[in-house]
Amino acid sequence: MELVNKWPKYYKQDVVTHYCPGCGHGIVHRIVAELLEEMDLGKQAYLVCPAGCAVLAYRYLDFDIIESAHGRGTAIATGAKRANPKLFVISYQGDGDLSAIGTAETIHSANRGENICVVFINNAVYGMTGGQMAPTSLIGQNTMTTPTGRNPEVDGYPLHITDVVAQFPGVTYAERVSVGTPAGIRKTKKAIRNAFQTQVDGLGYSIVEVLSPCPTNWKMDPVTSCKWIEEEMVKEYKPGLLTDKREERRKEKG
């Protein structure tokens, strides 16, 4: 008997993550590790993990990792990539990190067209701190700081940060995907592969927004959480390709 799904080379052997049952981080971590192996990038990989649930990603992922202050992932990624362009640099961030406290860093690293990849986990809530409203929370969504549902009159509207940066000339590849279904998970892997290849080809900034379940803070079971993504979240955040300027960039580069 032969094992079909071998343990990914760049995922630490036999670790159990601290993530809650059904959390999307585990799925995306595995995809990142698989792709680094398939694309032979693990040896020069440098991942910035955020302040958020994924702060401990270095316990699971088996390549070089640095922690970031809350929101500063793409600034650290910029510094590292500029200092050593041989590194394959990924900034792994959540929605509070990337689209609230780190908005300026996100916007400007994207606008500079830094040759880095951003993996953006959007679960519409602050996970690690216990389920407070995020900029991405849906209208009407109950969180610890919107106990009667997010009211745009006082709480503002869901922020579509990936759509914003996709407009920038410096952003080469932007796609929104979801890990709420097996098909979505396959698309996620494909999108992150494209993003990774964009950096390998030296074509500039890429970002993949992953709609990802947070069953604990959504106060749903994991299966219902996946359904909520596919029935509610996708209405606000429509999955799909947001920009793909890879061919343009190739032509520019000649």
Binding site: A75, A77, T78, A80, A104, H108
Partner: peptide
């Protein structure tokens, strides 16, 4: 070398962290 005018002081010092982490 690298010169970069950052978007903020906060970003600049975090870029410093990134570059320092690579031994530069």
């Amino acid at each position: 070398g690298v010169f970069l005018q950052s978007e903020s002081e906060t970003a600049a010092i975090n870029m410093v962290i990134g570059a320092a982490s690579t031994g530069t």
